[in-house]
Design a protein around this nucleic acid. Structure first.
Lengths: 248, 248
DNA sequence: CTGCCAGTCATTGTATACGTTTCTTCCGCC
DNA sequence: GGCGGAAGAAACGTATACAATGACTGGCAG
């Protein structure tokens, strides 16, 4: 029923030889790379919400032992990208409708609140960097690489938050964007991606003009548009179905 | 080597039932309790910033193996309460001045932004609960229990955020409050605690009156007052000292 | 006497083994 | 024929053993 073999098919990709370097030096770097690989796979919807992440399978795929995998899984769980149920293992988080609302409300508050400061601090090189990111996102969209586009969109929003200079809030926005990607995977209509392709460019224009007020308003509309495009229907999956129907 | 249980069964406290679970039972609950114990010790300044947290020592004190301790330490590291340096182990985080500014800016944005919603949703039982928390905090302050007062103050702010109904933002505020406690430990003047004793009561009054606007303004002043009471002097400790002086 | 180098120690990082729990499947019974 | 229970298997949780790396101390040379 559930595609738990989605991880086991090692033939899928570029990680052909994680075999040998178990011994040598930089383990931390390797862990970071594995973390990023899994995280990207989730954000790009290569791992759909609900997919099981068995420790053994991951350990084998990446050529490290379960100990390291568990560490990475815990980190992902703290960021709410995977859900760790006590004796059942890990699976990609399936956000509830309430969580989706919370995440977008939080983004509304934080990202909009950051815009004035970003407009104040933005520099020409940041503008060109952002334009480059927006361009790559547009290209990915046009060429049908939805996965890439989603990741680039999240990266754009996170980079924007970083430009505020507040590392704490930027990290928080980064988490919110990751979770938003998960929400899009569950509630997003397939044909319609989160961010309109031209939106980000417009926003950059306001920021370049140091117009914090308009940037804030535009970001607010932008996020509202994304949220409105979701079809939050609260599809019941398993047991809560019966409880809610007959329970009362 | 195996007499580690000599510490485990010292009958330390209220954990009456874990007698049996030498093997297992509810390990997750136990982990949670240990996490909370360490977290509280940090927040209450019983463990000062910079204090080293050796895995062996913690494992022996709590009667579990290093595996479990590492899990807890990683969680604390993700919440920025402890710093995990690659081959040097864990220590209580010593926030920098920049981090302190970021944290208080973030609190300013999020906690103030939450006040209108809190004022809208607050119920009489919440009001009495908050009043009770504020009273206990005042009592702790009066009786000189600074540690308790700090923890209660953080709990108050976190509970306030929870009343907004947004669990994501509430959890974020909880983290910010924990980090604020650390900041107070480093930069706070000893005689002057973070929150004035009457401030919280005043705030409750505004919320009870459903006056979100005044509550927001008051929270802003409240946080500004805490931040202003800090003596951020950027005391150099170890190596960065020389780098900053001779580095350029 | 001071500074450097080497050896030892202490502490963390990783892996593996074992115990426990849960899910699955099969068999028997209703 | 369907349902329930039991046994086996698979996967997670924990502990322990081993390896590697950084810190400290003692000795030697300049």
């Amino acid at each position: 029923m559930n595609q738990r073999q989605s991880l086991a098919d090692d033939g899928d990709s570029s990680k052909a030889k994680p075999r040998r370097l178990g011994k040598n030096g930089d383990g931390a770097e390797r862990h970071e790379a594995i973390y990023r690989t899994i995280s990207d796979a989730i954000i790009e919807h290569r791992l759909r919400p609900g997919a099981r992440l068995r420790e053994d399978a991951l350990a084998e795929v990446f050529g490290i032992s379960r100990t390291g995998i568990r560490k990475i899984l815990q980190r992902l769980a703290l960021e709410q990208l995977v859900t760790l149920t006590p004796r059942r293992g890990a699976s990609v988080t399936r956000p509830t409708a309430d969580e989706a609302k919370d995440v977008f409300d939080a983004r509304q508050m934080v990202e909009c609140g950051l815009m004035p400061e970003v407009a104040r601090r933005i520099k020409p090189e940041n503008v060109s960097e952002l334009r480059d990111m927006a361009r790559r996102e547009r290209e990915a969209l046009r060429s049908g690489e939805q996965s890439r586009a989603i990741k680039l969109s999240a990266a754009f929003h996170e980079r924007l938050a970083q430009l505020s200079g507040n590392a704490t809030l930027a990290a928080f926005v980064g988490q919110l964007c990751s979770r938003s990607s998960l929400i899009l995977a569950v509630y997003g209509s397939s044909g319609h991606l989160g961010c309109e392709s031209h939106d980000h460019d417009d926003l950059i224009g306001f920021l370049e003009a140091k117009n914090g007020e308009r940037a804030t308003a535009f970001m607010s509309r932008h996020l509202k548009a994304i949220e409105a495009s979701l079809s939050i229907v609260e599809e019941e999956e398993e047991t809560p179905d019966l409880q809610r129907i007959f329970g009362i």
